[in-house]
């Protein structure tokens, strides 16, 4: 509550400062600009699929423009971040062409799976403010759906784990294959202080950061502060990866826009997901 009140006072002060230092005018006079912005992720879906007009009014299913390939082609072009240098124009054109082929159109489906959110948050970790990234996906339930946590990226967690393969040879240890005959009495050496336990784990062991996150939260070592940023990763369209980010800027090319596009095979998609999760 104290933090909240502090925030209020701070905002008031900021407003006061801006008032007394200048004539502060941040009106958006051009309403058409607001129409152009992709205001919600929901609107991104509808625009991508050609299901609404330029003013955000939904087309009826019988409207000839509903999911019309030509209409979509023009609209999808506008759904890209025009200032992005990440996106290859040739790849973009191919993407638009492939999505809007009249005989085989590709649509995005809110409930279609294979897309997830990346939420940059801020937590207090053992007395210090730290960034923490949460990954969430939309999970279908018996009734309705909900967003659920699927993964966490948190730097202090990474530092807790060592890649056993990278240990110098003299530090590499193991439990010899006849340890069982001695009732594993040699475990005492495994657990001596500062031992790298990872080298005693099975091949392919990966730490589960979500479990760790829940454990640390339960032990009151993590307290939520705020959300800083949100973006989305789409693997829903065959052979394509889309990144969707929010832009808050002048002009018509603002709101939720495609900030990255990659042409990618099914196998490479798994590699890319691992990269996103920093695994």
């Amino acid at each position: 509550m104290k933090i909240k009140l502090g925030g209020l006072v701070l905002i008031l002060c900021l407003i006061q400062l801006s008032v007394y230092s200048q004539y502060f005018d941040n009106f958006v006079e051009d309403e058409s600009m607001l129409y152009a912005h992709t205001k919600q992720v929901n609107q991104f879906f509808r625009r991508f699929n050609g299901e609404e007009d330029r003013y955000g009014e939904r087309f009826s299913v019988n409207n000839p423009l509903y999911q019309n390939p030509t209409y979509r082609r023009n609209f999808i072009e506008l759904l890209f971040d025009q200032q992005s240098t990440n996106i290859d124009p040739l790849i973009k054109n191919e993407f638009i062409y492939r999505c809007t082929r009249p005989e085989q159109q590709n649509f995005l489906d809110f409930h279609g799976g294979n897309w997830f959110a990346e939420v940059k948050t801020s937590f207090n970790y053992k007395g210090e403010q730290k960034d923490l990234i949460l990954f969430l996906k939309l999970q279908e339930e018996e009734v309705g759906s909900k967003w659920v946590l699927i993964n966490v990226i948190f730097e202090p967690f990474f530092n807790q784990f060592v890649d056993a393969k990278k240990l110098p040879e003299e530090e590499q240890k193991f439990l010899h294959p006849l340890s069982h005959e001695l009732d594993f009495m040699n475990l005492v050496k495994v657990f001596k202080s500062k031992a790298v336990l990872e080298q005693f784990a099975e091949k392919g062991f990966k730490p589960d950061y979500l479990t760790l996150f829940i454990y640390e939260f339960r032990n009151l070592n993590l307290q939520f502060i705020t959300v800083e940023d949100v973006k989305f990763h789409f693997f829903q369209l065959n052979d394509w990866y889309l990144e969707l980010s929010k832009f808050n800027r002048k002009g018509n090319n603002s709101g939720w826009l495609i900030s990255n596009l990659l042409k990618i095979t099914k196998e490479d998609q798994e590699i890319l997901k691992a990269l996103i999760f920093q695994e």
């Binding site: 958006v28 309403e31 205001k39 919600q40 955000g56 009734v143 759906s145």
Partner: peptide
């Protein structure tokens, strides 16, 4: 207020209520 408003789809949530967002 500007004339513009944007209404999301109404989505069903697990407790049987609908949720939407209006901008």
């Amino acid at each position: 207020w500007y004339n513009i408003q944007y209404i999301s789809d109404l989505e069903l949530q697990p407790d049987g209520r609908y949720v939407g967002v209006i901008t």
